[in-house]
Amino acid sequence: MDLDEAALVAARERLGTKTLKDTVNVALRIASGRDPEGRDIDAALDVLASFQFEDRDEAWR
Score class of each variant (00 low, 15 high):
D35K: 13
P36I: 03
K18R: 10
G33C: 07
Q52H: 14
V26K: 00
A43W: 05
A43G: 04
A27Y: 05
E13A: 12
A7L: 04
E54D: 05
R61H: 14
W60A: 10
W60Y: 11
D57W: 13
D42N: 13
A44W: 09
A49Y: 06
A31W: 07
G33P: 03
F51P: 00
A59Y: 14
A31E: 10
E37Y: 12
L3M: 11
A11R: 00
S32D: 14
L28M: 12
A59K: 08
D4F: 02
R29V: 01
A44Y: 11
L20K: 10
D40W: 06
M1R: 04
P36E: 12
L48G: 04
F53L: 14
I41D: 06
G16S: 03
L48W: 09
L20S: 07
A7Q: 05
D4I: 01
R14H: 09
R39Q: 09
A44D: 11
E13H: 04
L20Q: 12
A27F: 05
A6K: 09
F51I: 11
A6R: 06
I41S: 11
D57S: 14
E13T: 10
E13V: 07
L45A: 07
A31Q: 13
V24Y: 02
D42R: 14
V47S: 02
W60R: 11
R29Q: 13
S32I: 12
D35M: 15
V9G: 07
K21R: 15
E54S: 06
K18S: 12
A27V: 05
D57T: 13
D55C: 11
E58Q: 14
R56E: 14
R14L: 09
L48M: 09
W60N: 09
S50H: 06
G16W: 03
G33I: 04
R56S: 10
G38L: 04
K21A: 12
L3E: 02
D22Q: 15
P36F: 02
Q52K: 15
F53K: 13
A49R: 11
V9W: 05
G38Q: 08
I30N: 00
A44H: 11
A10W: 01
R39G: 03
D42P: 01
Q52C: 08
E37L: 12
E13Y: 05
R14P: 00
E13W: 02
A7Y: 00
E54V: 09
A49C: 09
S50C: 06
T17G: 03
R56F: 05
L28E: 13
E54N: 09
A49H: 08
S32K: 11
V9D: 15
E58V: 15
T17D: 03
R39W: 04
G38Y: 06
R29F: 08
K18N: 13
T19A: 03
G38P: 00
S32H: 11
R39I: 05
L15V: 02
K21E: 12
D55L: 14
A10M: 05
L28A: 12
A59V: 14
L3F: 10
A44C: 06
A6W: 00
D22L: 02
T17I: 03
V24C: 06
R12D: 00
T17K: 04
R39C: 05
D4C: 03
D42Y: 12
L3G: 02
L8I: 05
R56A: 12
L45H: 08
L45T: 05
K21Q: 10
F51V: 08
R34W: 09
L8W: 00
T17Y: 01
A43N: 07
V47C: 06
